[in-house]
Design a protein around this nucleic acid. Structure first.
Lengths: 340, 340
DNA sequence: CTGAAAGCGCTTACAG
DNA sequence: CTGAAAGCGCTTACAG
């Protein structure tokens, strides 16, 4: 941003053509005599001229921009989803602006206000109030406003008609996890969960009960252990709770890899062997799984595919996308679960 | 983006004022009679009107946007730096667009081309060719072009006059690490390093030799172990190399937390106790340190402060910032280093 | 194939 | 305090 930046007019003057011709060369939308093209290209190169995306956006009424707002950009789940979205968006010629709300409602408000001004062609929302089991009407209203200015897609359950939702198949992930453990011979299975207010947790909890019943496994309420957040420390505290138990589970699922890592450490430091005494299974299959000792088996998703689907749905607006789609899950066996 | 979005003209007409008045209310730059303000605000609320940032940017010749390009957005070091920058930028009223180059030169080129069109008020560059010990002239030229359109700041050593560089104090980090280990009684110290072509590695290597000499500790070339990349697997392979050693170090520094985590696991699985037989110290102090067993001691930085400094330097352009600044380092003791 | 002109949606001197 | 008008830097009918 110098005093006044060089424009298409400057290029045109120096090349001895009209600004329209320069524009045609830049956009490549119309034929231009080769000789003129040459001259113009030379002048462009001489000044390292690059057309102003803002002016272009204003005339074309599009800006090749995608907004993405996540709850915590430095959390490895969200950063994996973002990285996947960004690369797909970039491949399609879009640039991504990432904003972080730290899961704070006041930030969600101000971030979405800013997004409306920025008018990205599409907005991808992941985490925060959008994940609430019982929708927050204030937030729903905010989404309605945002929709007037930009197409929105959520990495969650669809919050309303017209906003496609694409999310992890929470029920399938729990089903797979429990069946995997049952296949290893476990009958006494626990679940350390976080975020009861979120639909993903609700779905996993329901599925847990259901699949345990289907498999004819005993469901013990004391094996359902709530923790406050998604941290290592929360997992460690859950391990303490498990130690107190008269009769212990032989396997436990942790809400995500961080909680599971804490669980694993906590159990170990209580002298409980993993997987010797208790098997631990994580969710998300982030790189954390390679770092724990023993390495953590985990139910994961194809982040690359998830990101691609999110961006595709965001960008190809004419298609008739399903209101809700779920990402398939798979399990990666490492060393934290044993046959009993 | 409907057919035609609602504009300041629509608002003006319905409120019975001129567009200029609406604009004045929106920007808050000039006094407007209270009664008119009321009327206008009502119409704005009625339509959830939000001014178009692109049009505004074009007239004001600024866009309140910061670009950030990182080598790997899903790497925890970069995502910590980004999160810190984003929050500081947001606090100052800027939105951040994050782009990821995957450290590929061809992506650096296309990303920077796109950045020039987008004309963010400032660009923060972290990782990739900017970190090369011997500058790449092609890349330097690319930076020169970019500078014509936007102020650039790097999270690295300053590549040229006019581009402020702010980076981790690599020498200090190594000095601190070695002195810490020496303080624990270690004399036989090793270093597993990655990216010899990067200045940060070069600095750490030099400092390693220097501080070892200062402390009168024996420097054994076979304790300087190069690995290919910054992964857990690289650390594991380094552990194998250490096992082969006739005479083993009693402590080793790993290039970053990931490498150190792999080192730790590899050593453990070779039957070498950590920290009983060998102490391991990491760099970066990311959340990885809480997940390893034993938990990893690590030399880290204040990411929040780093991000704030990067953004401040990027945005307050009138100030006379030093060409090169280094972020202070500190050590966080956990359980991977023992007194000998 | 090419230029003059209008328009995208704002802001800001300029003149009351 | 307020409006008419010009301008920001492009693109695209429109008319040759």
């Amino acid at each position: 941003m110098e005093k006044r930046s060089i424009t298409i007019y400057d290029i045109a003057r120096e090349a001895g053509v009209s600004p329209a011709t320069v524009s045609r060369i830049l956009t490549g939308t119309a034929a231009v005599r080769e000789e003129k093209r040459q001259r113009v290209m030379e002048v462009i190169a001489k000044y390292d001229f690059t057309p102003n995306a803002y002016a272009r956006a204003l005339t074309e009424n599009r800006n090749r921009t995608i907004g993405m707002v996540v709850a915590h950009s430095d959390n490895s789940y969200y950063s994996s989803v973002f990285a996947a979205c960004e690369s797909e968006a970039y491949r399609r010629g879009y640039v991504t602006m990432l904003m972080d709300t730290s899961s704070r409602p006041e930030n969600e408000v101000s971030v979405l206000n800013r997004i409306r001004e920025l008018r990205p062609e599409a907005l991808i929302l992941c985490g925060g109030r959008i994940d609430l089991e019982i929708p927050d009407p204030k937030f729903t209203e905010l989404l309605e406003m945002t929709r007037k200015y930009t197409r929105v897609v959520v990495g969650s359950r669809s919050p309303m008609a017209g906003i496609p939702g694409i999310s992890v198949d929470h029920r399938a992930s729990m089903n797979l996890g429990v069946r995997y453990l049952a296949g290893l011979g476990h009958r006494e299975i626990g679940f350390v969960y976080t975020g009861r207010q979120f639909y993903g947790t609700a779905e996993r909890l329901e599925e847990f009960r259901q699949v345990m019943a289907e498999l004819n496994l005993p469901l013990r309420e004391e094996y359902l252990i709530p923790v406050e957040d998604y941290t290592v420390q929360a997992g460690t505290r859950a391990a303490l709770a498990i130690r107190q138990l008269e009769r212990k589970p032989t396997a436990v699922l942790g809400m995500n890899d961080m909680v599971s890592a804490g669980l694993l450490q906590g159990l170990l430091s209580e002298g409980i062997r993993v997987p010797g005494d208790i098997s631990v299974l994580g969710f998300d299959d982030t790189f954390v799984t390679d770092i724990t000792t023993p390495r953590l088996s985990s139910v994961g998703y194809d982040y690359q595919a998830y990101g691609a689907m999110l961006v595709e749905t965001a960008v190809e607006r004419d298609q008739d996308w399903p209101a809700d789609r779920r990402i398939p899950v798979f399990i990666t066996e490492r060393d934290s679960c044993a046959r009993i």
